[in-house]
Design a protein around this nucleic acid. Sequence first.
DNA 1: ACATTTGGTTTATTATATTGTACATAAGCG
DNA 2: CGCTTATGTACAATATAATAAACCAAATGT
Lengths: 189, 189
Amino acid sequence: MEPIHKKVGKNLQAIRKSRALSLDNAAELTGVSKAMLGQIERGDSNPTISVLWRIVNGLRISFTALIDDVEPEVTVVSPEEVEPFMEEEGAYRAYPLFPYNPRTKFESYLVELDPGCTHLSEGHNDGVEEYIFVQKGALELTVGEETFTAETGCSMHFSANRTHAYRNTGAETARFYTVIFYADAAARG
Amino acid sequence: MEPIHKKVGKNLQAIRKSRALSLDNAAELTGVSKAMLGQIERGDSNPTISVLWRIVNGLRISFTALIDDVEPEVTVVSPEEVEPFMEEEGAYRAYPLFPYNPRTKFESYLVELDPGCTHLSEGHNDGVEEYIFVQKGALELTVGEETFTAETGCSMHFSANRTHAYRNTGAETARFYTVIFYADAAARG
DNA sequence: ACATTTGGTTTATTATATTGTACATAAGCG
DNA sequence: CGCTTATGTACAATATAATAAACCAAATGT
C-alpha cells in the first residue's frame, strides 16, 4: 500500500506527461514552483492542500484524478440474474442492477411499483442524490411537503436527505430506474 | 472566494460536530494531533495531503466531503422538453435528460436506435464509464474486439475509453438509458 | 462546594514544505 | 560539430506544518 503522497506524485507526473508539459510549463500554469512540482512527482515532498488546489485548478483536473486508481471491463447484467428486494407486501420491488461503486459513487436499481402503492423512504444522509428515469407508468414523488408528478418518459433528480415517498397514481404497474449517488461513505451509512 | 484550506477547515468542523466528536475523539480516530485538527478547523494551518488522508480514512469520509460545496432541489424533466441529438440519418436519437453535473460527475440520456442501425462512438478519454439500461429491444455492444448482447431488461457497464459501437439487432426500435460518468474534466474533454 | 474531567487553544520545538537559484545533462538548431 | 536552449534535479534559506505539553474555562461527578 503506497503512501498517498507518492500516489499523488505518480498521478501528477502521468497527467503532466500525457499533456507533453514540462515542469516549467506546469509551474506557469499552476503557480507552484518547478522545484516543488518535481519533488511532488518524485514523492520527495508532501504537498499541502493549498498547493494541490493550485495544481488542480491550474491543470484543470479534478482532485480525484490525483488520488484515484484505475480499472476497466464490461459487465452485462440480465434480468434473470437479479432478485428483487420487496416491500409493501410485494407491491414494491427493487431490482439491484449495479452495486455501489466507490469510483463513481453511485448504485442503480430498476423499481416496480404496483397501482395505488406508496413506498415511503426515510431521508438518507446528507450528500445523497437520486435520479429517477420513468420507464412506464404514472409516478408521484413527495419530498418533504412538496409533491411532483412524472409519467412515462419523465425523469427526476432530487436531494434525498429528506423523507420522500413514491406513489403509483396510475392503473398499471409503474417501472422506473433509479440511480442513487452518495457523496461519501458517511452519506451511505 | 474562500481559500481552500479554510473551506476544508469548515467542512471538517461541520462533519466532526455532526457526529458529536470532540477534537480528542477525532484525534484518536485519525491519528492527527488534537492541536493540528484545531488549527485546520480554524483555518490557521494548511494541511498536507498525508494529514488529509489520515483524516478521511479515520473519519471514513471522502476527500470531496472536505472540498465541496452543497446544494439541493427537485428537478423534473418531461419528454416534451427534450430535443434529441440525431445521427446516422436520424436512426440514432439521443435525448439529454440531465446535463453533466460536476458534483456527481455524470450526465444521462435516453437513446433510441432504429432496427438495423449501428452507432459508432470513438473512444472517450480515460476515466469515462458508461452504464446502459435497456428499456426495450435487442442491443449489441462492441467494445474493441469484443461483442456483448443485451436485451430488454438488461443492463451494461463498461469503461468507454475504447471505440465502441451500439447496434440494434432486433425488429423494433431499441431504447435505452445511458449514464456517462467522467472521472475528471480532462476525461470529459 | 470542591475535585476531576472535558474540550479547545496556546506555546515552544522540531521537521519539513516551498521557493529561488545554481548546476548537469539532454535536446534542438544552424 | 558546436552552441544555445530546455529540462529536471540539487542546494540553501525561509516559512510553516505538526507535535507534545501546558493552559484555561466549562462541564461533570462526588
